[in-house]
């Protein structure tokens, strides 16, 4: 998704205004004029200026269209489905791995991701299982990261 220059300028200006307004209530250091709100307000001010500059530049150069256009790849339903899959896989891992455990979740995520990219089933399963064991052993055992445990393939832990 690519927004037009004018739209990007307007969004930047609105972003600056939003940050400025939200920073109005941040408290100062006791006895001082400056504090938690100083930096966000300064950032907001310069962000707003950048937005204004982009708006003026877009209007002066004749790029007055507002809105966005989809990138070339979005015309392909398959590409859109692949992007949706990868995002859902990350989301799925976040939600499911603490309940089901690291090993089964990772195997499923890897197999689905590889199939999505066109790997055949048998190599996908073999590589996924091996990769999961390598990651579990290196992070879980070697680096002692408390990856979510599970009964499945429990001998690995």
């Amino acid at each position: 998704m690519r927004v037009t220059d004018l739209t990007l300028g307007i969004l930047t200006l609105l972003g600056g205004i939003a940050i400025y307004l939200s920073a109005m209530n941040f408290q100062a250091i006791p006895g001082q004029e400056y504090g938690a709100g100083t930096m966000p307000r300064a950032v907001a001010f310069v962000t707003g200026l950048t937005g204004l500059y982009m708006i003026v530049e877009a209007i002066m150069s004749g790029n007055r269209g507002i809105g966005f256009r989809f990138a070339e790849w979005t015309r392909s339903g398959a590409a859109l489905a692949r992007v949706a899959t990868v995002l859902l896989l990350i989301l799925g891992y976040i939600l499911v791995s603490p309940i089901v455990g690291f090993v089964p979740t990772t195997i499923v995520v890897l197999v689905v991701a590889m199939l999505t990219l066109g790997t055949r089933l048998v190599p996908a399963v073999i590589v996924s299982v091996v990769a999961t064991i390598v990651i579990q052993q290196s992070f879980g055992k070697l680096l002692l990261v408390p990856l979510p445990r599970s009964d499945f393939l429990s001998f690995l832990w």
Partner: peptide, 30 residues
């Protein structure tokens, strides 16, 4: 790359988790 990209994705998620041992890191990464 059809084999490599999923494995890199997994390393990204485990790496983001490992900083604070919390899935919040993976939310931030996403």
């Amino acid at each position: 790359t059809r084999v490599l990209m999923p494995i890199i994705l997994m390393f990204c998620m485990v790496g983001s988790f490992a900083i604070n041992n919390s899935v919040f890191g993976i939310w931030l990464m996403l």
